[in-house]
Amino acid sequence: MNFYQDLGFLVFGSRLKRLGNTFINDVNRIYKNHKIQFDASWFPVFYILSQKDEVSIKEISNNLKVSHSAISQLASSLQQKGFIKSVISKADARHKNIMLTAKGRKLLEKIKPVWFALEKAMNELAEESGSSSKKILKALTGIETSLSEKDFFDRIESHL
Protein backbone atom coordinates (compact mmCIF):
# COMPACT_ATOMS: atom_id res chain seq x y z
CA MET A 1 0.00 0.00 0.00
CA ASN A 2 1.28 3.45 -0.90
CA PHE A 3 -0.26 5.45 1.90
CA TYR A 4 -0.36 8.79 0.11
CA GLN A 5 -1.51 7.52 -3.27
CA ASP A 6 -4.14 5.17 -1.88
CA LEU A 7 -5.82 7.88 0.21
CA GLY A 8 -6.19 10.29 -2.71
CA PHE A 9 -7.65 13.69 -1.90
CA LEU A 10 -7.91 12.87 1.81
CA VAL A 11 -4.18 13.59 2.11
CA PHE A 12 -3.85 16.08 -0.76
CA GLY A 13 -2.65 18.89 1.54
CA SER A 14 -0.16 16.57 3.24
CA ARG A 15 1.29 15.52 -0.11
CA LEU A 16 1.63 19.13 -1.26
CA LYS A 17 3.29 20.06 2.02
CA ARG A 18 5.66 17.09 1.82
CA LEU A 19 6.61 17.97 -1.78
CA GLY A 20 6.98 21.64 -0.88
CA ASN A 21 9.24 20.79 2.05
CA THR A 22 11.34 18.54 -0.18
CA PHE A 23 11.77 21.30 -2.77
CA ILE A 24 12.57 23.99 -0.20
CA ASN A 25 15.01 21.81 1.73
CA ASP A 26 16.86 20.84 -1.45
CA VAL A 27 16.98 24.44 -2.70
CA ASN A 28 18.40 25.53 0.66
CA ARG A 29 20.97 22.74 0.37
CA ILE A 30 21.97 24.13 -3.04
CA TYR A 31 22.46 27.63 -1.61
CA LYS A 32 24.53 26.20 1.24
CA ASN A 33 26.53 23.95 -1.10
CA HIS A 34 27.41 26.97 -3.24
CA LYS A 35 28.18 29.10 -0.18
CA ILE A 36 25.35 31.52 -0.90
CA GLN A 37 23.91 33.07 2.27
CA PHE A 38 20.29 32.87 1.14
CA ASP A 39 17.15 31.14 2.39
CA ALA A 40 14.38 29.95 0.07
CA SER A 41 11.80 31.69 2.26
CA TRP A 42 13.26 35.02 1.13
CA PHE A 43 12.60 34.22 -2.54
CA PRO A 44 9.25 36.02 -3.01
CA VAL A 45 10.54 39.35 -1.68
CA PHE A 46 13.82 39.11 -3.59
CA TYR A 47 12.04 38.12 -6.78
CA ILE A 48 9.59 41.01 -6.57
CA LEU A 49 12.46 43.41 -5.83
CA SER A 50 14.37 41.99 -8.79
CA GLN A 51 11.45 43.13 -10.98
CA LYS A 52 10.81 46.54 -9.36
CA ASP A 53 13.22 49.04 -7.86
CA GLU A 54 11.04 49.64 -4.82
CA VAL A 55 7.78 48.23 -3.55
CA SER A 56 5.51 48.60 -0.54
CA ILE A 57 4.96 45.87 2.04
CA LYS A 58 1.24 46.09 1.22
CA GLU A 59 1.89 45.47 -2.48
CA ILE A 60 4.04 42.42 -1.71
CA SER A 61 1.42 41.16 0.74
CA ASN A 62 -1.37 41.58 -1.83
CA ASN A 63 0.62 39.94 -4.63
CA LEU A 64 1.57 36.93 -2.52
CA LYS A 65 -1.77 36.69 -0.70
CA VAL A 66 0.14 36.58 2.59
CA SER A 67 -0.56 38.69 5.66
CA HIS A 68 0.94 42.16 5.88
CA SER A 69 2.42 41.13 9.23
CA ALA A 70 4.26 38.13 7.75
CA ILE A 71 5.80 40.25 4.97
CA SER A 72 6.65 43.01 7.42
CA GLN A 73 8.47 40.52 9.68
CA LEU A 74 10.38 39.07 6.73
CA ALA A 75 11.28 42.57 5.52
CA SER A 76 12.51 43.50 9.01
CA SER A 77 14.72 40.43 9.08
CA LEU A 78 16.12 41.19 5.62
CA GLN A 79 16.70 44.79 6.65
CA GLN A 80 18.62 43.69 9.76
CA LYS A 81 20.81 41.53 7.52
CA GLY A 82 21.48 44.57 5.32
CA PHE A 83 19.82 43.21 2.16
CA ILE A 84 16.99 45.73 1.94
CA LYS A 85 16.28 49.23 3.18
CA SER A 86 13.23 51.39 3.73
CA VAL A 87 12.75 54.45 1.55
CA ILE A 88 10.11 57.12 1.27
CA SER A 89 7.72 56.28 -1.58
CA LYS A 90 8.32 58.29 -4.73
CA ALA A 91 4.58 58.18 -5.44
CA ASP A 92 3.41 59.23 -1.97
CA ALA A 93 5.76 60.72 0.65
CA ARG A 94 3.41 59.51 3.43
CA HIS A 95 4.33 55.90 2.69
CA LYS A 96 7.49 53.84 2.88
CA ASN A 97 8.68 51.27 0.40
CA ILE A 98 11.50 48.76 0.51
CA MET A 99 14.32 48.29 -1.96
CA LEU A 100 17.46 46.20 -2.27
CA THR A 101 20.67 47.62 -0.87
CA ALA A 102 23.99 47.23 -2.69
CA LYS A 103 24.55 44.11 -0.54
CA GLY A 104 21.11 42.83 -1.56
CA ARG A 105 21.77 43.44 -5.27
CA LYS A 106 25.10 41.60 -4.96
CA LEU A 107 23.31 38.65 -3.36
CA LEU A 108 20.65 38.79 -6.09
CA GLU A 109 23.34 38.32 -8.74
CA LYS A 110 24.60 35.22 -6.90
CA ILE A 111 21.16 33.65 -6.61
CA LYS A 112 19.85 34.29 -10.13
CA PRO A 113 21.78 31.33 -11.59
CA VAL A 114 20.22 29.11 -8.91
CA TRP A 115 16.75 30.33 -9.92
CA PHE A 116 17.54 29.57 -13.56
CA ALA A 117 18.79 26.07 -12.67
CA LEU A 118 15.79 25.49 -10.41
CA GLU A 119 13.37 26.35 -13.20
CA LYS A 120 15.21 24.03 -15.60
CA ALA A 121 15.18 21.22 -13.03
CA MET A 122 11.45 21.65 -12.40
CA ASN A 123 10.70 21.60 -16.13
CA GLU A 124 12.86 18.50 -16.47
CA LEU A 125 10.99 16.85 -13.59
CA ALA A 126 7.65 17.67 -15.21
CA GLU A 127 8.86 16.24 -18.56
CA GLU A 128 9.98 12.99 -16.90
CA SER A 129 6.70 12.62 -15.03
CA GLY A 130 4.51 12.56 -18.12
CA SER A 131 1.84 14.69 -19.69
CA SER A 132 -0.30 15.01 -16.56
CA SER A 133 2.59 16.69 -14.71
CA LYS A 134 2.68 19.43 -17.31
CA LYS A 135 -0.90 20.31 -16.33
CA ILE A 136 -0.18 20.62 -12.61
CA LEU A 137 0.31 24.40 -12.61
CA LYS A 138 -2.99 24.94 -14.39
CA ALA A 139 -4.71 22.55 -11.97
CA LEU A 140 -3.23 24.34 -8.94
CA THR A 141 -4.40 27.67 -10.34
CA GLY A 142 -7.89 26.23 -10.72
CA ILE A 143 -7.90 25.04 -7.10
CA GLU A 144 -6.60 28.41 -5.86
CA THR A 145 -9.29 30.22 -7.83
CA SER A 146 -12.02 27.98 -6.44
CA LEU A 147 -10.71 28.47 -2.89
CA SER A 148 -10.79 32.24 -3.35
CA GLU A 149 -14.51 31.91 -4.11
CA LYS A 150 -15.27 29.58 -1.17
CA ASP A 151 -12.63 28.67 1.39
CA PHE A 152 -11.77 25.12 2.37
CA PHE A 153 -13.17 25.48 5.90
CA ASP A 154 -16.62 26.34 4.53
CA ARG A 155 -16.43 23.49 2.04
CA ILE A 156 -15.73 20.98 4.81
CA GLU A 157 -18.39 22.48 7.10
CA SER A 158 -21.00 22.13 4.37
CA HIS A 159 -20.49 18.35 4.47
CA LEU A 160 -20.75 17.97 8.24
Rank of each mutant, 00 (worst) to 15 (best):
F46W: 04
F3H: 09
S77V: 05
S50E: 03
E119R: 09
E128R: 14
S50F: 03
A139H: 11
V45M: 14
V27N: 02
Q80Y: 07
V11P: 03
A126K: 11
F3I: 12
E59F: 04
A121H: 07
N28D: 15
N97R: 06
L118M: 08
D26C: 11
L49P: 00
V66Q: 10
A121F: 09
P113M: 04
I98F: 03
D154T: 14
P113K: 02
N63I: 11
K52G: 01
F153P: 01
L19N: 08
F38E: 05
I143H: 01
W115Y: 06
L147W: 08
N97D: 14
M1I: 10
L7R: 11
V87C: 09
G20N: 12
G13S: 15
A126V: 06
S56H: 04
I88N: 05
F116E: 15
L10G: 06
F3T: 09
G20Y: 12
H95A: 07
S61V: 03
I30N: 06
K65H: 12
H34I: 09
I36P: 03
W115R: 00
S133V: 06
Q73M: 10
V27T: 13
E157G: 02
T22M: 12
A117C: 06
K96P: 05
L49T: 00
E157W: 08
N97P: 04
M99A: 11
S61P: 04
G20V: 04
I71R: 06
N28C: 05
I88D: 04
E54F: 08
E54K: 09
D92A: 02
I60Q: 01
S61A: 14
K81I: 04
N62S: 11
F43H: 14
T22N: 10
E59S: 11
G8D: 04
F43R: 10
A91N: 13
G82V: 10
K110L: 12
S41K: 12
S61Y: 04
P44Y: 03
